[in-house]
Design a binder for these strands. Structure first.
Lengths: 64, 64
DNA sequence: AATCATTAGGGTAATTGGGGAC
DNA sequence: ATTGTCCCAATTACCCTAATGA
């Protein structure tokens, strides 16, 4: 298994992003819908968020 | 000289697909059973997924 | 042959999306 | 203007056993 260990962007669930920012998961969805947050979709329509983007946004809003 | 380098579709295991979409392997099985995902079968009945299709679906559901 | 991780099933909790409203 | 909460339907996660894969 794992024939080709390509670097795939790791995705976070809405709940995980919500925990990181200390907000409600619904708020995370609002961010995504308003374009503030980039998101992939599962085939069922649930959102998955690129981990590196989340951390980048966290750092970016530091010290404000 | 590339005598017999036919383009063979690379197959991914359920666990690999699950990792890519950040879902449970069972969810991938449900996608296959509902026709959302194309799948081949091992002789024992386990599913294998064409890699190309997986990446295409992941990219396709980008945005919004 | 024997071990151990993975998968297919099926059932039942938990999460998520969407919509609007407060 | 942003966030949290409530509702509902759909999707997904976790539980188990038996079979397959390696």
């Amino acid at each position: 298994m794992d024939t080709d260990n390509a670097v795939v962007e790791r995705l976070l669930t809405p709940a995980e992003v919500a925990t990181i920012f200390r907000v409600d998961p619904k708020t995370v969805s609002r961010w995504a819908r308003s374009g503030k947050l980039n998101a992939r979709r599962t085939l069922g329509g649930h959102r998955r968020y690129p981990e590196n983007e989340i951390w980048a946004l966290l750092d970016q809003h530091q010290g404000e």
